[in-house]
Design a protein around this nucleic acid. Structure first.
Lengths: 343, 343
DNA sequence: TTGTAAGCGTTATCAT
DNA sequence: ATGATAACGCTTACAA
């Protein structure tokens, strides 16, 4: 490809400046800090930009300024609808801004996460959003030397790398179990799949809530590291029934499992909530319309995404939040599946 | 934050070249076309890169070479799990390559799509993946002047912009209806939500299959532009029952609707498949474990993503596919919900 | 508020 | 196969 005709069709900042009758640097400032220009020049540059259809060259900008307008987002899964909602919040809010999102997926591997974080650091993003608070020491180190605002999402804890937005999975789980206990259930099973750190904390909440009333029993617990599916919910529930036939309730670490349990109950003609209560986690949309409607713990995923990206952008632009840790809480959605048992 | 020490710690290609005892341009070639170096220099550069922990500056590379290693992906939704699967395929395959993904979401708006496509074109991506074949004339024009390989995904048709990978929604829908008819059902309802172009083609397949046996009746059709949910499936089904109480089957344009119909049947004590057959579309995981198990049309979403990105990368690197249009087909997943009715 | 000068780190071109 | 040179388009630092 010829390099001679570069001069002809290309619209650079120089062309804009020429047409506006200013120096290139003034045209440059028009984009980065318009209020620094006099009104007249600002208008002249503005119309020159429009007239020429000028589009900034981001590579040149990044090279000269040593910074990019890219915010990295590291999540463990693309298909888990929990993260889909978070992402929607992130993308929605980012579109109002000049920043673009660079998405990366760890597939729940902390080593993959390490690799990705190193990659991101090398590319000097303007900001970063990462999932969770259980990074490896090496990942943690990378995050701390990131030289840009970082927000950890999905859960909250002490010692944020920088900022955090999420909620307490422990508290949410504890509250769910307390609710089930209040309905008069005693033998509450626990079903867990893909035991990532947040799911682990949900287990901790379950265990402590049960221990608080001296009802904890290891036989009530069935977990696996296998990824969650609805089908798996049925399978795990069958296992649970085998090792604890007298259960009268099941707490599932997510809604897919809960739906699978419901289906398995239907298959076995176990009445819900008559003989079995079911409570899920996340409050996906289908929970409300199942028959019977399924109780769950609602989490504010979309808002989590919005807040995370907003906090990062604000921090990039010098508006650091007063409070670095934002707790978005949760809500118990009590529905038919956790009504009291029939005599 | 220090900004003075830019010169000190920086490792540029120049440093690598110096350590290796070659010129910078030779070091540069090491990355882009290693086989052009003599073995000895190649080894020297290689070890220099490792010793210094050199990381290329992508901005400088893009500025100097007038090209990026970014592949744009334009999809209508982040939360629709159909696209989540496609994305997983895209990301999985892209990680094996040097290309990174720039994701954008149109929210099913063709005007938003136009804007995004213009934005992408201005940034000169190395390749592009877009959803569907129903771009506006303006979008179509942008795509045609994109100056990089483009793959349209999700469906196939005549006149690809460049390449295509997908399947025929019309054929898939036609096949599903034929199956239901074969079970002896006559009054087959159609439930559609968010009538995007692909859903519209599923309707066409339904209509033509019904007309072919002279069973088409507008009263059998209920559609809405509202986004799909499970709850909506129940609502639409109620509407359908109101306008055609004698239906004996329902074809839903996606599985969420189908699940909602199942729940509504349970609520109304309509036996499935005894009095009502249900068939969905996409074959999401839960369909197989519902009670009764729900029939659906399986689509190869993950593979679609993988093929799309692979075709784009191959084309970028000069390996154009012999066949620009790839049909990934579909499979009828026949389950209990579409067994023949009881007397 | 505006401008001048000097790169930013890499690659294209052309020559050897 | 290798290298010298000149961009690439923009911004920082400093000056006025």
């Amino acid at each position: 490809m010829g390099r001679k005709r570069t001069k002809s069709g290309k619209i650079r900042l120089t062309e804009v400046a020429k047409l506006a009758g200013v120096s290139p640097i003034t045209a440059s400032r028009f984009f980065r800090n318009p209020s620094a220009l006099s009104l007249s020049k600002r208008e002249r540059v503005d119309s020159a930009v429009k007239e020429l259809g000028y589009v900034p060259n981001l590579a040149a900008r990044a090279l000269a300024s040593h910074r990019t307008e890219v915010i990295g987002v590291v999540i463990p899964s693309l298909t888990n609808s929990v993260f889909a909602d978070v992402l929607r919040g992130i993308y929605d809010a980012s579109e109002q801004s000049r920043y673009s999102i660079q998405l990366a997926n760890t597939r729940y591997s902390i080593l993959q996460e390490e690799k990705l974080l190193r990659l991101f650091r090398a590319q000097k993003p303007a900001g970063l959003i990462v999932t969770g608070i259980n990074q490896t020491p090496e990942s943690r180190n990378v995050l701390e030397t990131m030289d840009c605002p970082v927000t950890q999402i999905m859960e909250i804890g002490d010692s944020p790398v920088d900022m955090m937005v999420g909620f307490s999975h422990y508290d949410a789980s504890f509250a769910a179990i307390s609710h089930i206990l209040e309905q008069g259930r005693r033998r509450i099973g626990f079903l867990g799949a893909r035991m990532d750190p947040r799911v682990q904390r949900r287990f901790d909440g379950y265990r402590d809530a049960m221990k608080a009333v001296s009802l904890f029993d290891p036989n009530l617990v069935v977990t696996t590291t296998v990824p969650t599916t609805v089908t798996l919910g049925g399978t795990l529930f069958a296992d649970l029934l085998a090792q604890a036939p007298d259960i009268d309730a099941v707490f599932c670490v997510n809604d897919d499992l809960a739906l699978g349990v419901l289906f398995e109950c239907q298959r076995r003609q176990i009445s819900v909530p008559g003989h079995m209560a079911i409570v899920g986690f996340n409050d996906l949309e289908f929970m409300a319309s199942a028959v019977p409607s399924l109780s769950s713990v609602r989490t504010n995923r979309y808002e989590m995404g919005r807040h995370a990206i907003t906090m990062v952008i604000d921090a990039i632009e010098g508006r650091r939040p007063q409070q670095p840790v934002l707790d978005l809480g949760f809500q118990l959605m009590i529905r038919d599946s956790s009504m009291p048992p029939t005599a």
